[in-house]
């Protein structure tokens, strides 16, 4: 594996770009995590046909190459069957917007959209995320071109340390996708699976309602 050499690339300054990291892992957008050693088995994991019949259940071992549709792009990574979607995003694809905070489904900081529904990515295995449409906070907007929800979060100071922010942005986005005119209570409920330790909730409520208004063109 010639990419192994790249793993040890030294960068000379303090700034590390995503490209540099991915290059280290072995390529451009069709990313391959090449942390496996040559002696380990590698299985190709296929999206399970739905509904999966007993005979269609595939036993996975060693390392598996997963193909994921993330933010409209096909990406691949070499992970273990037990690797969560969150760890795959963060450690293998350098999509670090989703945060690891509890790693067991009780904080919401790792929330991403899976087929447009908010999902705790720490509670889903990467192999199970294949064949589904995954959207992370990075896929919603960029600092240069923010989504209305992101813009409203900034404008209303709905973030302090910002560590919970991606999770809230994704949850609010999911809400506004299905409810264009939410009440304060709707916003609270939509975000009840997210926590913030800095205490930004009142400004998050303001931001979500303002974003809804803006999206309605009101």
């Amino acid at each position: 594996m010639s990419e192994e050499k790249n793993d040890r690339l030294e960068s000379s300054n303090g700034d590390v770009s995503r490209r540099q990291f991915l290059k280290g892992l072995g390529g451009g957008i069709a990313v391959t995590g090449v942390l496996a050693t040559a002696t380990e088995t590698e299985t190709e994991a296929h999206p399970a046909p739905e509904p999966a019949s007993a005979s269609a259940v595939q036993r996975l071992r060693g390392k598996v190459r997963v193909r994921l549709n993330i933010n409209g792009q096909e990406m691949t990574a070499l992970v273990e069957p037990r690797t969560t979607l969150l760890n795959t995003l963060r450690d293998h694809l350098d999509l670090t917007g989703a945060k690891k905070v509890c790693d067991r489904g009780s904080c919401g900081c790792c929330t991403v959209l899976v087929n447009d529904k908010p999902v705790y990515s720490c509670m889903m295995l990467a192999v199970d995320a294949q064949g589904k449409k995954i959207t992370t906070v990075e896929g919603l907007g960029t600092p240069e071109k923010m989504s209305p929800v992101q813009e409203a979060f900034v404008e209303h100071d709905a973030l302090m340390c910002g560590f919970c922010t991606p999770g809230f942005v994704v949850s609010c986005t999911a809400l506004l996708q299905k409810n264009r005119n939410p009440s304060l209570e709707d916003v609270k409920k939509a975000c009840s699976g997210n926590v913030c330790r800095c205490g930004t909730y009142p400004h998050i409520f303001e931001a979500a309602l303002a974003a809804a208004k803006k999206m309605r063109g009101a």
Partner: peptide
């Protein structure tokens, strides 16, 4: 704010380096 709201902000937890 824009970096934090879009997931671009890099916390210590988010630093990925080659190798």
């Amino acid at each position: 704010g824009p970096d934090k709201a879009t997931g671009r902000a890099k916390y210590a937890y988010d630093i990925n380096l080659p190798g």
